[in-house]
Design a protein around this nucleic acid. Sequence first.
DNA 1: TCCTTTTGTTATACTGTGTAACAATGTTTG
DNA 2: CAAACATTGTTACACAGTATAACAAAAGGA
Lengths: 203, 203
Amino acid sequence: MPRKSSPVNIDPRVKRTRRLLRDALVSLILKKDFASITIKEVTERAEVAYITFYRHYETLDQLLMEVLDEGLVELMTHIETLAKQSDASALETEGRLIFEYILQKADLFRILLKSQSVTRVRRKVVRNIAIIFQKSCVPLERLGNQVTINIASNHIATSLLALIEWWLENNMNPSPTEMGKVYKSLIIDSTVGAVRSLSIVSM
Amino acid sequence: MPRKSSPVNIDPRVKRTRRLLRDALVSLILKKDFASITIKEVTERAEVAYITFYRHYETLDQLLMEVLDEGLVELMTHIETLAKQSDASALETEGRLIFEYILQKADLFRILLKSQSVTRVRRKVVRNIAIIFQKSCVPLERLGNQVTINIASNHIATSLLALIEWWLENNMNPSPTEMGKVYKSLIIDSTVGAVRSLSIVSM
DNA sequence: TCCTTTTGTTATACTGTGTAACAATGTTTG
DNA sequence: CAAACATTGTTACACAGTATAACAAAAGGA
């Protein structure tokens, strides 16, 4: 296994090989079920020797995580900056921007949602989104106790993912603008309202 | 492949074999990851010849679906009868009953949620729950257009599943009574409210 | 009991995983 | 540029799991 992050300069051959493997996996996921993809297939498409795969990764899951990490970091920072602007007028715009972003990177999201078959991936994505909302969504952190906040942020994260999934399955209709309204009303406003009413009854 | 449903009377040997295979799979899922379970393992635990599996099923997925179908039909009818009583006073009770039901059959639900790694299973469950709510949840079918209703029922189904999953991961705390409140407030009331406000802006 | 169906046993072809040894190629450093 | 080093390619192999076939044994229904 070649060193990866210890020295600052990575061997260009290593860089190249890993890129080829990632690209090969991505192109395969876009037209096959992830579960049916084999290491042999990936290395053949990458035009790399079979054993070379094992010199960089242990499993296909690991390679998949690396692929998703690239894309997820981008999505996360995107949502994070949006989630910080929590005044009511900006919320609808926030929703619209999320769905416009997805429209741009539809391929990546199809991969992400297809890969949810790998449970680990799903959990990781949900947790990351939940943490972002828990930290940066102002109305949440003021209301309710810890349990309520945990439930609520988990609810937002899973709902957002489910809404994105639904939208992709419906060929990205309706428009991002309308999905922005849905996002604001169905996910954010609803959850904030529910947390408020739950904290009144003092769970 | 022995006949299954054509004649009313199924050969007792067939019935026995299938039950043994289902039970074996269930007991394996409860202590292993589904993805790592092999047909050989299942047949050995069922004390049945390896080839006998193929005389009844084509894949492990298929056997899993049969296992889940048993449990799901039960859950579905349970939720369905509950969803019909949709007056506000009954909703909290409805929620409590759902989570008490899950508490009773915790094993089945752990299997169900573990098996969500099989994407087909997840989709099927979500669709079934969504259809139930779409049909029987009175406030939904009166408000909003078709798209909004689709989104809303999908939202309820995925949120309910996510909430159940969260609860199981947290060792079924808090109590079913409190989860009932969360269910009513966070999922049902919120969604109905959102659909109402979305239909006013006339999507 | 006789006939049919199901199950068990054994053997086999095939695919994919994971490792090993050594040769060939590319990269860096003196 | 050449030597030293790291990575990649080739070939071979052991292994596990899938899927099927042929025939014998056991169980069920008429």
